[in-house]
Design a protein around this nucleic acid. Structure first.
Lengths: 207, 207, 207, 207
DNA sequence: AATGAATGAGCATTCATTCAT
DNA sequence: AATGAATGAATGCTCATTCAT
């Protein structure tokens, strides 16, 4: 009994988590109703409280689930090749995870923006220990050693810039009538990150 | 009666608008209470309804006010100088407008992300006619002519990339404990936009 | 100046009264908005308060105006002829007054039903002094003398019965999809009032 | 759990319905506060929403409950005897149902008068299928066969006349200081319906 | 573990009325 | 007399959460 029950419970949790991701994605944090999530997952109104303490805890759990997928995806990219190709692989892995849960991802960004700093800190993965970020920094470090990446910037700074550009492109993609498809993002991101829009000589001059 | 009252009414509207920007910024759209805004502006609970039809209309009005400031700021930057300096001026103008209403800006982005496409379209300034964007495209066009900017991308595409990077940096800045100050953004933005993080030769090789 | 102004004021009052009758008729007492009435009559929101103290006072005034028309109409019917013809004339006079202000009449009945007894008493014309009722009782009295009307009932009782039947027919007419037109009412009313639906013999038997 | 809870829920619904009938009766539809009803029935403010979707739905439910009582009462009158006695029984059954919920009945009539035709149609029992009306028509039909009732009118027309008179008497009874008691109505109604106030010969003459 | 009835805190909006001009 | 800005009282409804079964 214990094993069966545990498995069933795990399956129930999954179902609730998936349904919650959909509902939060469709209606936003405030708009989603916890009753609806529970019912849509095939349970009674209040059953969800046997799995999650509160609406906020549920949201955090969906967020954590999302982060796990992201980390898992990052873990599978190859560790060799050019910086460009490795960055592209990383970006594509991330994009594919987001594409899978796109509406929720939008809501997640939105909610993190809203929360006061302390809550946000709890929700947002800590950069220092984030495996995804870790992987990115490794690539950049290797690039500096191999000469593919500028050495006049710290790895941390560049990682933040790349993350910023990635999030910015995502935002652009989400604006109404955007011409940017989610699958365009990895390429746009890597290319722009590496090259910029200026022309070599002008850089030298201006500095 | 007419002149005095009209001026007073305008001043009252301003007061309500400013207070609303603060409240929305502090508590988000859903969290802000329209009663509180009215009272905080020095009126009775319901007086605000003499100026704005609904909470949503009030939010739109604050948004429009914000957009106006942004446009006004963009209108004052010089029209000559290097692409780099002109972009920097534009970015600084925008940053200073945002800095003035920073908490509201955060909420504004958040809300636009939330709205369904049709509502968002109504709220978000139309790119094609946005004076700010117009100005940006003019700079890029001049840059292409003078050879400061790559010619293998359309002006529209580059404008979108720059906007994406700007929004992404803003997002980074808003993450808890971010080391990026709002005043760092213009410089980071322009530099990265023009130069990228790669090294010239690697570009040539990879292509 | 005094005469002109007084005439103008009187005209304004009329305009407000007529507009109020329409608005009350269309939306009911609670549903009608005093602002709308004032504006629809061509004035500013609050101007109506220069003519009527409150919404309730306005309603009473419209009611009084209505009663006046009714009384005036009753005053013009001939005082001779058969009971049947005189009753018919009275009923037709009343029906035509009601037809003129039909929606308001409906609302008036409705509101009188709602009010607590003391308010209703103030609104509803006092039977004992109501010229309309007075006229009706005169006809019935004449009928008793001439033998056209039963003598085993008091005039008051019969007047009440006729009024009840009249109001009941009006109600029927106002029910959705009623086949009874307002112009049918006088004839139906008089005929039924005089004759009943039973057959002579059965009356005798049963008593 | 199920059986006990279901019974309890039914009892709670009843309590809310009864309380609502009182409150609506005392204060009218607009005047009654849904919170008060819930609290007066012994629940928290919002509990009533577990039973009825909205104020309007609650009102309709009370109305339906009222109609059910009326139908049930009509179902119990005897099917033989003179027309007079059967009509009297029917009228008394109806009067006793109304007497039980008199204040609500008043409000119900009032509200039906107020509603636009489509809403009223939904609220008001359809004549064609109304068991009460059905019963009335059966009595009249029998009366025409037995010669107790005039044959020169259609059953439908007479049924409407009787209903009109009944409603009119009710209205009279509800006017302030009316001498008509609710228990007088059945007798007045039947007698007047059958006989009219005219005298046989005058009818003959006039025709 | 699942249920669902009960709860209560929370909130935008309406509108008659007042009053200074 | 006319105006219109300001007012404040009043209320239906939502939804996360609890708890007894």
């Amino acid at each position: 009994m214990p094993r069966v029950t545990a498995a069933a419970k795990e399956e129930h949790r999954r179902r609730l988590l998936d349904t919650a991701a959909e509902e939060f994605g469709a209606k936003g944090y405030a708009g989603a109703r916890i009753d609806d999530i529970s019912v849509a997952a095939g349970f009674a109104r209040s059953t969800i409280y046997n799995y999650f303490d509160s609406k906020e805890a549920l949201f955090s759990a969906v967020l954590a689930d999302f982060a796990e997928r992201s980390i898992a995806a990052a873990g599978q990219i190859p560790e060799d090749g050019s910086v460009r190709s490795r960055l592209l692989a990383l970006a594509q892995a991330d994009a594919s995870v987001i594409a899978e849960r796109e509406t929720f991802a939008k809501v997640a960004i939105r909610e993190i923006l809203t929360q006061p700093a302390d809550v946000a800190r709890a929700l947002w993965p800590n950069r220092a220990v984030d495996p995804f970020d870790e992987r990115l920094r490794a690539i950049l470090r290797d690039g500096q050693e191999s000469g593919e990446i500028r050495r006049d910037r710290s790895v941390e700074e560049m990682a933040r810039l790349l993350a910023a550009l990635a999030n910015g492109l995502l935002l652009e993609h989400w604006l109404p009538d955007s011409p940017i498809a989610i699958n365009d993002i990895p390429h746009l991101l890597v290319e722009h990150f590496l090259e910029g829009m200026g022309i070599g000589s002008s850089v030298a001059e201006d500095r």
